[in-house]
């Protein structure tokens, strides 16, 4: 799918301290996969620009964010698994 060094899986809302740590740790060439409350990052418009951003579609739909999900690449459960397999490293925040 992509060449990703480290895939950061973020399931915490932007208010959670760990979300900030995740942003600080992101390097060029890393990927960010938003799941659960993590998809709320899409609503803040504060996405990291150096990285590929993915968002889990059912979590996006649950929160009524389908209309702004264009800022991220939408993935289903199968694609999420593929992403985690293809990345060199994974950090689950």
């Amino acid at each position: 799918m992509t060449d990703i060094q480290t895939l950061h899986i973020l399931n915490k809302s932007p208010e959670h301290p760990r979300a900030n740590r995740c942003m600080e740790m992101m390097a060029a060439g890393d990927g960010l996969l938003l799941t659960g409350s993590g998809v709320l990052l899409l609503a803040t418009g504060q996405l990291p620009d150096a990285s590929k951003v993915f968002a889990l579609a059912p979590d996006v739909d649950a929160r009524g964010l389908g209309h702004i999900a264009g800022n991220a690449i939408s993935v289903d459960f199968t694609e999420m698994v593929t992403l985690t397999l293809e990345a060199q490293k994974v950090i689950s925040w």
Partner: peptide, 22 residues
């Protein structure tokens, strides 16, 4: 805080097997 996201229109939680809080 993040709680305001309860109030967004057009939520559909069927895909994650929950009831829609809206």
């Amino acid at each position: 805080g993040a709680g305001v996201n309860w109030l967004r229109q057009s939520q559909d939680a069927g895909g994650i097997g929950q009831k829609t809080v809206e």
